[in-house]
């Protein structure tokens, strides 16, 4: 164990898998080191789930290899998976079981102590363990997926879009749990298509787009992107010119309003908006696809 401390917990080299159409991954290289929370971001359909399935041995790559805890992930699948907890993005469970039966089933694979942790997590995430799996909402299903991944105190957590469908309160409890896991010594591989979520949690990220890793690095680099989408509604009979808004892209005027992308300091945007005769304003994170379109194209990073 000690000598692994320095090496990566999770490493893929030239991981390539294609099936049929355009879906697939090409030459994916990822290195995740002990006790970090590693973000894996990309728009929907970019290949995140494919990469994760290859890491977990659900699918077999056309070329490249996967090393987990320094071992060959494809050859020693069963041993390696014992040390991993996995939250899939879209998970169905066996019909006819209730939550407790399913969690017990999952816990039994890992040893006696796993069962005893069910109640604690269920309480924190507000999940009623007596309910039938069939009747669960998407959010509750997600809770089951999260709990089953945590029960055996894994050394590596692989999370594929874990927060979709969770309400904000549960989301923050989930982040809290993740930080606890991290301080316990767990390494976390966090896949998401929401930039702000990754920004909040992760120290390093890999960005995947159309099956290729387009960028890896510290999260701070991403912060510099600092792009916001805004939508404005003007007061009746008033018009605003492009120069009033500063550094904007894709500005389009709609009936009685305008929308576009703003790059730069949000404070500056706010002060500019304060001077304008507007009725309402929405400022939000743009979609990742949008960021890629503008940021990476403009700054000359390869597609």
């Amino acid at each position: 164990m000690e000598n692994l401390k320095d090496g990566p917990i999770l490493q893929t080299r030239n991981l390539t898998k294609s099936y049929g159409k355009s879906r697939g991954i090409i030459d994916v290289d990822i290195e995740v080191f002990p006790e970090e929370i590693y973000g894996f971001i990309g728009p929907n359909g970019a290949g995140k789930s494919t990469a994760i399935r290859a890491i977990l041995g659900l699918i077999f790559p056309d070329s490249g290899d996967v090393r987990l805890f320094g071992e060959d992930g494809l050859k020693n699948g069963a041993d390696v998976r014992r040390r991993i907890g996995f939250v899939p993005s879209d998970l169905n469970f066996y019909d006819g079981l209730n939550v407790r039966q399913l969690l017990n089933y999952s816990a039994d694979f890992y040893g006696d102590r796993s069962r005893s942790r069910i109640d604690g997590y269920a309480e924190r995430l507000k999940l009623d363990t007596r309910r039938k799996i069939d009747d669960l909402s998407l959010g509750n299903r997600k809770k089951v997926a999260i709990i089953q991944a945590l029960l055996h105190r894994p050394e590596l957590l692989i999370l594929d879009e874990p927060t979709s469908g969770l309400d904000p309160l549960i989301q923050s409890r989930f982040y809290e749990i993740l930080r606890e896991e991290q301080s316990r010594g767990c390494t976390i591989f966090f896949s998401s298509h929401t930039l702000s979520e990754v920004e909040r949690l992760c120290s390093r990220v890999a960005i995947i787009r159309e099956g290729r890793i387009v960028k890896t690095g510290q999260i701070d680099e991403l912060r510099r992107i600092n792009m916001k989408r805004f939508r404005l509604l003007f007061r009746k009979g008033v018009s605003v010119s492009e120069s009033d808004l500063g550094n904007v892209k894709e500005l389009t005027f709609t009936e009685g309003g305008a929308e576009g992308l703003y790059t730069g300091d949000v404070k500056e945007l706010m002060s500019r908006l304060a001077k304008l005769p507007i009725e309402d304003a929405v400022i939000e994170d743009p979609g990742l696809e949008e960021i890629f379109m503008h940021y990476y194209q403009d700054s000359g990073v390869e597609e």
Binding site: R53, G77, A78, R82, F86, F109
Partner: peptide, 17 residues
Amino acid sequence: ADKTAEFLFTRPVSRNS
């Protein structure tokens, strides 16, 4: 078909077992 395979095949057991 029921999408439970992701659960089963990520348990710490070999495909053979």
